[in-house]
């Protein structure tokens, strides 16, 4: 994690920021995960990181930001590619709405 953070500080690579966000999610630091996902996804107008929106929704939900989480799950249901994650996002949205 420290090496990823150091590398991001040097090159500001979005892929590294996403890796850091996913690692924080695995380590169950949801607030930090949300912050790192948000750093990339809030500016991802071209939807390059569409598949990451589901995990961003999970991080938001577990950080207690349920309205924002529901919006991310909705986006994933409408535009995501993985049918399993879409089904999972629908389950998540059902409970959040």
């Amino acid at each position: 994690m420290d090496q990823y953070t150091k590398a991001y500080g040097e090159v500001k690579d979005k892929d590294i920021a996403i890796k850091i966000a996913k690692t924080h999610l695995l380590l169950r630091d949801y607030t930090k995960s949300v912050n790192w996902f948000n750093r990339v996804l809030s500016k991802d107008k071209a939807n390059k990181y569409l598949e990451e929106r589901f995990l961003y929704g999970r991080a938001l939900k577990m950080a207690g930001s349920t309205t924002e989480a529901a919006a991310e799950f909705k986006t994933y249901i409408e535009t995501g590619a993985d049918p399993n994650l879409k089904a999972w996002a629908e389950t998540e949205l059902k409970e959040l709405s």
Partner: peptide, 17 residues
């Protein structure tokens, strides 16, 4: 649970453990 609740102990962050 890894909830952030009174008395909870976490090595790193509030919900790691």
């Amino acid at each position: 649970s890894n909830r952030d609740a009174p008395g909870s102990k976490s090595l790193k962050g509030k919900t790691c453990c």
